[in-house]
Amino acid sequence: MAEITGLREAVAGLVGDGDTVALEGFTHLIPFAAAHEIVRQGKRDLTLVRMTPDLVYDQMIGMGAAKKLVFSWGGNPGVGSLHRFRDAVERGWPLPLEIEEHSHAGMANRYVAGASNLPFAVLRGYVGTDLPKVTPTIEPIACPFTGEELTAVPALNPDVAVIHAQQADRKGNVLLWGITGIQKEAALSAKRVIVTVEEVVDAFEEHTFGIVLPSVAVDAVCAVPQGAYPSYAHGYYARSNAFYEAWDPIGRDREKFRGWMERHVLGVEDFSEHLRSIRQEGAMG
């Protein structure tokens, strides 16, 4: 059963140095608050797993929290590059970053296999591309019934999955709606699960395209309003496309990036202070 607790306690108790950690949320509901807490607590040597590293892993990689990244699309959507990710891959700054790269379908199926307690998943794909040459976790496999050649990818079973949702009830059941991406599979594939939510409510209302993750599948629920900002929480606040655009010049420059993280992440107590801090500064510089 999930314990309703503070984010600081949840991260301190459930995330360890060297862990494989998946912070998921496909553009929607990206757990930025939890990522900042992991950075503030100085967690190290993490293997970060995420389909789209996004700004959330750009920040964690740039702060040296990761030794390895498992991913399928590493850009700033609609804007351009993730400069901290590129700096780590191209120049090893601040630390060399080992990468294991897949396609979206490969990653999605790896989570499904993990959630299903299977060793691997099977899909049509990767054949004829250069991905199997650079990614050892892609192997051909013959169908035992027809002999057809398909592709196998190993299950993902992170030590910790972290997701953000709109609501939890007081028993720790979790409700998310809108684009729910890969969060259910990520949570069910992981050994430990932290969920940050916009609010804890007495009872859920009906929502189109909603899913409920039962409390038994969750370890910690932490109320962090706006904890997915600058991504969004459907029904609460919109994606700050302006933030994603403003991140480009910050992420591009090592000193600007360090300064920004020191002022707005390391130098604050929690996410509400982070939001106040970036708003006070007005612009994103």
Partner: peptide, 25 residues
């Protein structure tokens, strides 16, 4: 126009919204 493939704008008026494994598989 969405800036990303997952902007809320896309789910708002969609006929259906399904999980990522479902869309690919």
């Amino acid at each position: 126009l969405p800036l990303s493939i997952g902007d809320g704008e896309l789910a708002e008026h969609a006929d259906s919204v399904v999980s990522v494994p479902e869309i690919f598989n």
